[in-house]
Design a protein around this nucleic acid. Structure first.
Lengths: 254, 254
DNA sequence: GAGTGTGAATAGTTTCACAGCG
DNA sequence: CGCTGTGAAACTATTCACACTC
């Protein structure tokens, strides 16, 4: 079971490149802010700055959606908000379930941005019977037993997994079996899902490690040379004390 | 002041492609699991399956690090764990601060993966004086006033922002001014930082919107369903006709 | 004049396929 | 043989630069 199919087949996306899709929410957020300030139009330059991208990219992105701008003027804010919302499928309502109501699950349940745009928390689900019935973010927590029924009754197609790593695959399997076809995974595990199911992963420790990599490089820039040569591989002398998982072995390059 | 410099200049990364760097933590996790089961060697095929990528990609990735495998055999698990850890900078200890101890901040503070690999929570910081002193995940919450002192004393170079969106830029500015050069941002805002500072963003609502996009496409494949009718996307004055290739119905009333 | 829309150029990433080593 | 390491090919994404429209 563990070694199932995992990679996304990079769905053709109706011609809209995946990289563009990933930026549309960013544009939408910037546009919504403008809309709230009643700004009628924006140039690609202004909007790009607000979204943190460059204007050429933004214009190219929008060109995949259609010709929604006006030359010499810019884009109509309200109109673009609508077009992007529609493109992203936010003009409809997506019921989601959150499974695993620990610290993180509770945080997600309370997150305002959840409800704001097209998403509605249909249920909070936890395996701990002691949690059942307790209200979190105004919703009573349901027990895992009810998972399938909840998904069916609410027509849920998006599930959020916020369980410990050990439970994630099992929860995932049940979600998928019950009809969920999109999963947002916060557990630090690689999930195996059948074709046709999308998984997106949010992984704190991966992000930190990427930062550490760049951070290390910054530090290394100042001092000259010393390329690798991991002479001091040994660390922490003993195997005791720290290190719940594998210690770093004192292996040296031959 | 809001419109500062934002885009990352795609640092040269000592020859290791960014896409590869982003996968190293994934490999590391899979390798650590193997290491715990005392598996001595893995083939690229096996490891790739465990990490959820394909083997050609994995081999190419590893080739940027050096020739760490043995032809006909595979990779030595312990050795690779060490090499990747070193490459990612995890053989040293990175003190981090978490700013904003709400639901999410608390969840992050409690997250085990934080401490496990090279990262150490140096302090939890919150603007609410009522939080000050309260223990969260075994650490007393500090008030924002102490931010600069904490960063300096602990040599913190990585900061995690888990505040509400409104406070994020301000917190970011203070972190950067105090010497932080890598930021992991959970607030739904685009942060402006000076050159040389890395920002990574984790954004729940963006991930959900990307899922919704694909979900919508799946649904659309089956039925030629009509797109939802836009409520009130009234298109402002100019002209009336949507220009040239406007095959898209500007705004169709219900 | 101002600013979009887009082909063409460039850069980055993934996949292929196979030579070569253990 | 089996499996790594890697050039070359294919694909994807970003940037440039300018024709074209309002």
């Amino acid at each position: 079971m563990a070694t199932g199919r995992t990679h996304r087949p990079a769905t053709r996306s109706r011609g809209i490149p995946e990289a563009t899709v990933a930026r549309l929410p960013l544009y939408l957020r910037a546009l919504t802010a403008l809309s709230e300030r009643s700004v009628p139009t924006v140039s690609s330059e202004e909007l790009a700055a607000a979204a943190g991208v460059n204007s050429a990219k933004l214009r190219k992105d929008f060109s995949y959606l259609g010709s929604y701008g006006t030359r010499g003027v810019g884009y109509d804010v309200e109109y673009l908000v609508y077009q992007i919302s529609r493109e992203l499928g936010l003009t409809q309502d997506w019921p989601v379930v959150i499974v695993g109501i620990g610290n993180l699950g509770a945080a997600l349940a309370n997150y305002g941005g959840f409800a704001s745009r097209g998403f509605r928390v249909a249920a909070l689900i936890d395996a701990d019977p002691a949690m059942a019935g307790k209200p979190v973010a105004g919703l009573p927590v349901k027990h895992t037993d009810e998972l399938e029924a909840i998904i069916e009754e609410n027509g849920v197609s998006i599930g959020v997994i916020a369980t410990p790593a050990g439970a994630a695959q099992q929860v995932c399997d049940r979600l998928v079996a019950a009809g969920v076809t999109s999963i947002l995974n916060f557990a630090p595990t690689v999930l195996s899902v059948p074709d046709g199911v999308d998984v997106r992963k949010v992984d704190l420790s991966i992000e930190l490690q990427i930062l550490a990599f760049h951070e290390q490089r910054k530090a290394g820039e100042e001092s000259p040379a010393a390329p690798a040569a991991p002479a001091r591989a040994v660390r922490g002398g003993s195997g005791g004390g720290k290190g719940p998982d594998g210690d770093v072995p004192a292996v040296m390059p031959a």
